[in-house]
């Protein structure tokens, strides 16, 4: 109920309108994806491997071009302005930053240097940057202890913290978080998501996160979109999705009654497309 309340009271920060993405001029990956992220919301992008979650995030942050991908149809708006022609550097300056799947820390830089690269686009002076460095350390105290260690030698969980902290250093309005749970122990996943919730609540950062771990994503998000084969097949508030029988069956692994035969599943899915 509170989730619904926060959703409706906020205006839309990001809206993706019917985008189509093609890689290498031939491979059609997104076939018309639309979604909206409200200001200060946490929105989850769910789906299996290859559904198009990462591509959607990269389309927004415009990291696509470096991978020979192109948005061929549709538009992306952030704070009411078109952003699909901006470079990723310009986007970071506007307040949209992506934390990539698989952390992607700068291995040979120390933890602190990694964090400081996040402030590359900022022009508000060292004092402000150092303040934010302390802020990041207050969220991730473990990083403070390891601030002189080369990032390549830190653990997976610490690297994920570095990646999120690095993004925070750019003072973002919105973080696109790709697969934060990847390869991490359940306890660490919980810790990461706990921090996402805190950052959202205390710093007012909006999150759009792609996750395969539907269960945890729906616990922390207030809205969810489910992607299949480059299309949004289902969306709704997190509470709704958690109760949806299809989501339970296919994404949460909770069956009601007997298990559904695989042949039935395929059939069933086909009929269930285009719900939105």
């Amino acid at each position: 109920m509170t989730e619904a309340a926060t959703l409706t009271s906020n205006k839309t920060l990001l809206s993706v309108n019917n985008i189509e993405v093609i890689y290498d001029h031939v491979i059609l990956v997104l076939k018309g994806v639309s979604l909206e992220v409200p200001e200060q919301g946490i929105v989850a992008l769910l789906g299996a491997n290859g559904a198009g979650k990462t591509t959607t995030l990269k389309a927004i942050s415009n990291l696509l071009r470096a991978e020979r991908g192109d948005i061929t149809k549709g538009s992306i708006e952030f704070e009411g302005k078109r952003i699909d022609t901006l470079t990723s550097a310009q986007l970071v300056q506007q307040g949209v930053i992506q934390v990539m799947e698989g952390r992607h820390c700068f291995e040979h830089l120390t933890v602190e240097e990694n964090l400081l690269t996040g402030a590359y686009t900022r022009r508000d002076g060292n004092a402000a940057i150092n303040r934010d460095l302390e802020l990041v350390y207050s969220y991730f105290p473990r990083l403070k202890k390891r601030n002189r260690a080369q990032a390549g030698y830190t653990s997976g969980g610490e690297q994920q913290m570095v990646a999120i902290g690095r993004a925070l250093m750019s003072r973002p309005k919105m973080i696109l978080l790709d697969e934060p749970s990847m390869g991490l122990a359940p306890q660490l996943v919980e810790e990461i998501f706990e921090n996402v919730a805190r950052l959202n609540r205390d710093e007012g950062v909006t999150f759009l996160l792609a996750e395969q771990n539907t269960n945890i994503a729906l616990r922390y998000a207030n809205h969810g979109y489910i992607l299949e084969n480059g299309r949004v097949v289902l969306d709704g508030s997190a509470a709704e999705l958690r109760e949806n029988t299809d989501v339970k069956e296919f994404y949460l692994g909770i069956s009601e009654g007997q298990r559904i035969n695989f042949r039935d599943v395929k059939h069933y899915r086909r009929r269930k497309r285009w719900l939105t």
């Binding site: 470096a66 300056q93 240097e113 690269t117 686009t121």
Partner: peptide, 24 residues
């Protein structure tokens, strides 16, 4: 320097450097 750090960052990981707003 800030630029020097960015140079080393690019050396380590192009993609990640792009993602934090470093213009290659």
């Amino acid at each position: 320097t800030r630029i020097g750090r960015a140079l080393r960052a690019v050396a380590d990981d192009h993609q990640a450097a792009l993602s934090v707003g470093i213009s290659l």
